[in-house]
Design a protein around this nucleic acid. Structure first.
Lengths: 256, 256
DNA sequence: ATCTTGATTCAACGGACGTTGAATATTTTT
DNA sequence: AAAAATATTCAACGTCCGTTGAATCAAGAT
């Protein structure tokens, strides 16, 4: 009956005068809060109420603006992919064009793939950092990976692999696909920034030091591609026994 | 009052005669079911009831045997780590010993690290496959990775890195740590088996084909290590501009 | 045979979950 | 200024959540 409407008035005042964060529209603030929280605890580890409280909006707005929690998750994932990937594609084409009539160096191709991500994760703001941590989890999730990664990244990846194959003439396509798989695994774990390398190295390396990654990943991966492609052609067995046979022994099967 | 105890009698009969799965003790069946479900949907994506229903036991047994859901998750993670890592360590030492008085090939060191996992994921049974998919998610999770990976894998990893450094004399320690980081990222994404490489390659490569990974990963990673370590010594800038400078442009900062 | 201990079942708890519909407020269009 | 469209608030819904305590069962020890 005599309840005073503190909330509404208070929110309005805070939005127009006091706090910075209330400047953005609610829909965007939900995306920001969801991005941060989903990156930390995954889809099921975050409730709609967690997100709306962090965003300072009402719970019902998630269903209103996005249709539901799952759709919000997809929208979070889509938002920055659409900002990022056109630029990565343009950079890749630029690398390719500037190497004509030859083919670009493998390092440059890999860099075109990784640099826009590493650069934004390092200096693009907290939102981008959260986003890439989220990508790391999605990429390794059997539930979300096949859906979201395929939908938003595969067109770019296909073009990237095509350019890689140009730069690796005569190399079996399978080697390139596996080489890409190893690259994306290394890249996404980097974005997870779990701090594990910090502990392992006793502080010598830091997860957050993406410049160190930028200086090393392309070289590492390019060498890996070359090693895969200079290996014996599709001869499944024989030769090169040193790397495969030397000290390996069979693992016994589990007892039934 | 007159309720008939169908459940108990039925379960007992099924356990002793009809079904295979009831042969194991309840505690182990909970671990098995949790392993499978956690691997698919993560910690928060699976309820205690999901697990106990899959295991065919009462809900209360999770709290009774493990103390709670979180402790069950940790127990699932610990169980196979304790089977696996002593063997990986023994294999590493065997590789090292059999190379004396020299140092082992990088490929053999990496293989000692990866082969026991790849072999079990390929031929160790469904439980092992689930387990490594779970490891892939944990390794990329900012919430669980630092806790569980550090606790159960770091002693092994430290020894592994020490041997790597023996095999890379004169190489800066940071290069080895980063090289390991890229390796574990590539390895764990492989275990996630999201099927993404299958779609990308049009069926040419299969996520589940861990033998293909075994044939390629050690070569790829060893070449990567060598590339990191033969690069210009800790000279942070200069030289080698081709790999770093050529076609890269600055990414503009976000508007404030 | 009785006692003891550990394993399992059952029912229930308070709370958090995602979503909804009606009511209200705000902005845009006419 | 009125009307329409959009945005936000509030309260509540039914459901599922993890955990608990008391009761029952199954064996082994005394």
């Amino acid at each position: 009956m005599t309840v005073v409407r503190r909330k509404t008035a208070g929110r309005k005042a805070a939005a127009s005068t006091a706090g910075r964060p209330a400047a953005k529209p609610a829909k965007e603030r939900i995306l920001d809060a969801g991005e941060q929280l989903f990156a930390r605890n995954g889809f099921y580890g975050v409730s709609v109420r967690d997100i709306t409280e962090a965003a300072g909006v009402d719970v019902a707005l998630v269903s209103y603006h996005f249709g539901g929690k799952r759709e919000l998750f997809a929208a979070v994932f889509r938002r920055r992919a659409e900002m990022l990937n056109p630029e990565r594609l343009a950079l890749l084409e630029e690398v390719r064009r500037s190497a004509l009539p030859g083919v670009p160096a493998l390092e440059d191709i890999v860099n075109a793939f990784t640099y826009p991500m590493l650069e934004r994760s390092a200096r693009g703001g907290a939102g981008w950092k959260s986003y890439f941590a989220l990508v790391a989890q999605v990429n390794n999730s059997p539930e979300w990976g096949p859906v979201l990664m395929t939908e938003h990244f595969d067109p770019l990846v296909e073009r990237f692999i095509a350019v890689l194959r140009e730069a690796l003439p005569g190399c079996d396509a399978r080697e390139v696909y596996w080489g890409y798989q190893f690259l994306t695994g290394a890249l996404t774990l980097t974005f997870a920034e779990t701090g594990r390398i910090d502990k392992l190295s006793g502080g010598l390396c830091r997860s957050s030091d993406l410049d160190s990654v930028h200086q090393r990943l392309a070289r590492y991966v390019a060498a890996g591609f070359r090693a895969l492609c200079t290996a014996a052609a599709p001869a499944p067995h024989g030769a090169r026994s040193k790397t495969r046979r030397s000290a390996l022994r069979k693992i016994p099967r589990r007892p039934p």
